[in-house]
Design a protein around this nucleic acid. Structure first.
Length: 286
DNA sequence: AAGGGGATCAACCGCACCTTA
DNA sequence: TTAAGGTGCGGTTGATCCCCT
């Protein structure tokens, strides 16, 4: 069954936006808010497709966008998130406030890919290019452990989780949120990686936990979907309100537990990065 | 100064997913 | 349950910029 086009292609402007079009769009959204992109162009007096308006707003006109070069910390964070999430640009962008998925995607393709290649790292797999050529059966234990890649298992696990949750819950796709009985909860992003095959003692789990309760902040009146904690645990006890987990074996892969509710105004160590960029409270949940 | 080629990034396209009736 | 509408995502394109010869 075919679908009607999102808008009439004829009589529509395409290509670069003019200053006047930008002003019309910004002015309309300022007074009416985002949403209903299909009818927005007509209401705003724009000869543009709704999708085009949405893209222009999200990628360029939104007032909370951070323009300018990516910082080194952002570079590192993007690389690490890409190793976890793959080409899920919207998920990566959700963890870099002020940056858009399009911007990150472009940046990845034009800068980071080359940077990784110059270091001998395959940007698709995050493996050493040389190591990638060695068959698994001939790799040493060290090489195999270095090759931990989260993407395939992540997809697999996430999909099965989603299937389960789809049956009983209303979903909000934005930023991996689940809307359940009028409350938002983060569904677990499980990155439990190949422990049975290559590293029996290793259990990596990337999880976005339910919203933190009993926050002693001035802005506690926010809706419950605006804050949460984000932590990665390594199959060990992870204290829920500490900024760092205790580990029994310091030689194991590093991990972090981040209480965003208590660290939003200070730097914290996400994936080994001292960074402030991972603040879910700044993410808008639609 | 010209132009060729690579780099960059805004914008488009097609598709998949979610919602709703 | 199903079809249609709405929205968002990821891949790709193309215009423009910039550097080098």
């Amino acid at each position: 069954m075919g679908r009607s086009p999102c808008c009439e292609k004829e009589h529509m402007n395409k290509g670069a936006w003019t200053k006047e079009e930008d002003e019309r769009l910004v002015s309309y959204i300022k007074s009416h808010g985002e949403g209903c992109w299909r009818s927005l162009p007509r209401a705003a007096g724009l000869l543009r497709c709704g999708k085009s308006c949405r893209l222009r707003w999200i990628n360029y006109l939104r007032p909370d966008l951070k323009r300018g070069n990516f910082t080194h910390d952002e570079d590192e964070l993007i690389i690490k998130l890409h190793s976890l999430l793959g080409n899920k640009w919207s998920l990566i962008a959700a963890r870099l406030p002020g940056r858009t998925d399009n911007e990150i995607k472009n940046y990845w393709n034009t800068h980071i890919k080359r940077k990784l290649l110059s270091k001998g790292i395959d940007p698709a797999t995050h493996r050493s290019i040389n190591e990638a050529k060695i068959p698994d059966s001939k790799k040493t234990e060290d090489q195999i452990v270095k090759d931990v890649s989260f993407v395939s298992r992540f997809e697999k696990t996430k999909n099965s989780e989603e299937q389960k949750q789809n049956k009983s819950q209303k979903r909000n796709r934005s930023n991996g949120l689940v809307c359940k009985e009028e409350r938002f909860e983060y569904y677990p992003i499980v990155v439990e990686e190949v422990k049975e095959e290559i590293c029996p003692d290793l259990s990596l789990e990337l999880r976005i936990s339910p919203p933190w309760q009993n926050l002693n902040h001035d802005d506690d009146q926010r809706s419950p979907n605006t804050a949460s904690r984000f932590y990665i645990e390594n199959g060990m006890q992870c204290s829920s309100d500490t900024a760092k987990c205790q580990t029994e074996d310091s030689s194991s892969i590093s991990y972090s537990s981040i209480d965003i509710s208590s660290t939003s105004s200070i730097g914290y160590d996400f994936l080994g990065l001292k960074t402030r960029v991972l603040d879910f409270r700044s993410l808008e949940m639609k």
